[in-house]
Design a binder for these strands. Structure first.
Lengths: 223, 223
DNA sequence: AAATAAATTTAGACTAATCTAAAAATAGAT
DNA sequence: ATCTATTTTTAGATTAGTCTAAATTTATTT
C-alpha cells in the first residue's frame, strides 16, 4: 500500500495547475501549456508527469499530454479549497486587501492538517466564495460555479452586481480598487464605444470609462 | 550583496534548534547535540554549519561546535515568534488543545510574510505567552522569561499557579489534561513521599498524587 | 606521554527537482 | 504524402539536503 496522501509541494502545485488548465474533465493538457503556466521547462513537466502517473494522480500518455485521474481531481480540489479558505481568512480576519492574498495563500495551501482546515472553515462561517468571487469546494469536493457573465459580453443598458474577476493579478485588482470596484458593487452599462469597445459605466453612484481589457476580466451577475 | 533574508526551511530549523540548545548566548553547541535533537546525523550538521557560517548566521570553528551570531539570534527569535503566535492562534481561535498545536505550528512557522505575522499578532491581542506558557518574542526580538519555578523544586506547603511546562510533548500534555492541570490552575503541595519524591497535590479543589517525573516538567509561579 | 575511545569531519553516493542540449515524435503545409 | 516546423522526450548535469563509511581530531584513561 502506497502513501498516496504524502504529496510534496511541487507535486501539489502541478496538480493544481493541471486542474486550472481544465485537466479535471479528462481533457489532455500539453506539457508545454503546463510549463508555460508554471514558468518552468517542458522537460521538467515530463519528469513530473511520469511521477504523478506512477502515483495514480494523472493519466499520462507520451506525447499526448496529461489529465487528472479521479484521485487527482479530488486532491487538486483539496488544495484549491485550502487556498481559497486561507484567502478568505486573510481578508475577513486579518484585513488583507484582495490583491495581497494570493502570494501568501500559495504558501498556506500546502500546510498539512485536516483539522486546521475544518476549523478554519468553521471560523469563517463555511464561506461559499473567496475574495475574488471564486467558489470554495466543500470537504467532499463539491462546488458551484456562480451564475455570472463577463462584463464585455453584456449589452448596453444591462445592470448587474460584480461577483468575480477572471484576472486576479495584484495589478488588475489594484486598478479595480482605484475605480471603486469590489465584490457586491452594482454596475450599469451606460454606453459602449464602437471604436475600441471601451465601456461607459455607472459604478455605484459614479460614472467611469473602462477599456475592453478590463471588461473582459470582470464578472457580473445580472439583476 | 547577499540575500541573507532568503532562508530555506531546513536552515530555519537548524537555527531554531541551536537557539533552543542555548547557542544564542555565544555558547558553542556540539554537532552531536544538534544532530540528536533534530534526529539527523552529525555529518549533516557539519554540512549545514558551514553553510550557515557562510551566510553569517552562526560562528563555526571546526571541531569546536556552533553558536549563533547576532543575526542568527535575531533570525531564530523571528521563527520562534512565528511558531508561538501560530500556536496561540490555533488554541485561541480554532479551539485546538495544547497538545495538538506543535506539529501544525512547525509547518506554519515557515510561512514568509511579515504582514501576516503582524496582523496575526494584532488579531490575538499581542499575547505575551503561548499556550504552553512560553514567552512570545516581540517584533524586535524582546521577550521576558516568566518568573517561575519547577514544581519539583518547591517545598511542601507551597502554593502557586501553573504557568508553563518544560516538556511539551503531546503525551505529557494529555496526561496533564487528564489530571485537570492547565495554565492558570492553582496548585498546592500537600506532601512529598521521601521514597520516590512523588507529590501529593491539591489541584483546583481536587487531590492528586503525581510522580517526580511530572513534577520536574511543570512550572509554577509562587503566589 | 602513549594508547585508546569518542567526537567530528571528509569523501563519495543518493534522491528530488530542476535545467540544457540533443534526439525523437507529432502536426502542419504544400 | 512528404517535408518542415513545432512539440515532446531523453540523456546528462546541477543543487540542496541528506546519508554511510572512512579518516581525522580531540578527549580520556592508564
Amino acid at each position: 500500500m502506497k502513501k498516496y496522501f504524502l504529496m510534496t509541494r511541487s507535486e501539489e502545485n502541478y496538480l493544481k495547475t493541471i486542474f486550472h488548465l481544465g485537466g479535471g474533465d479528462s481533457k489532455s493538457i500539453t506539457t508545454n501549456a503546463i510549463a508555460e503556466q508554471m514558468e518552468t521547462k517542458p522537460s521538467s513537466v515530463t519528469d513530473m508527469a511520469k511521477k504523478l502517473a506512477e502515483k495514480g494522480l494523472v493519466n499520462y500518455v507520451k506525447y499526448q499530454g496529461v489529465s487528472l485521474s479521479e484521485l487527482g481531481v479530488k486532491t487538486a480540489l483539496g488544495i484549491i479549497r485550502k487556498h481559497r479558505l486561507w484567502e478568505t481568512f486573510l481578508v475577513d480576519k486579518l484585513d488583507f486587501t484582495w490583491d495581497e492574498v494570493h502570494e501568501v495563500a500559495e504558501q498556506l495551501e500546502h500546510i498539512k492538517s485536516e483539522k486546521l482546515i475544518d476549523k478554519l472553515d468553521e471560523l469563517l462561517g463555511h464561506p461559499k466564495y473567496d475574495p475574488h468571487g471564486d467558489p470554495i469546494p466543500t470537504k467532499n469536493g463539491e462546488f458551484q460555479e456562480r451564475d455570472k457573465q463577463l462584463l464585455s459580453e453584456l449589452p448596453v443598458g444591462a445592470v448587474g452586481v460584480c461577483v468575480g474577476v477572471k484576472d486576479s493579478s495584484a495589478a488588475f485588482l489594484q486598478y479595480l480598487d482605484k475605480h471603486g470596484v469590489s465584490l457586491g458593487k452594482s454596475i450599469q452599462i451606460l454606453g459602449k464605444e464602437a471604436f475600441d469597445d471601451s465601456l461607459h459605466l455607472l459604478i455605484g453612484d459614479r460614472e467611469h470609462t473602462i477599456s475592453n481589457q478590463i471588461a473582459t476580466n470582470l464578472y457580473l451577475k445580472i439583476a
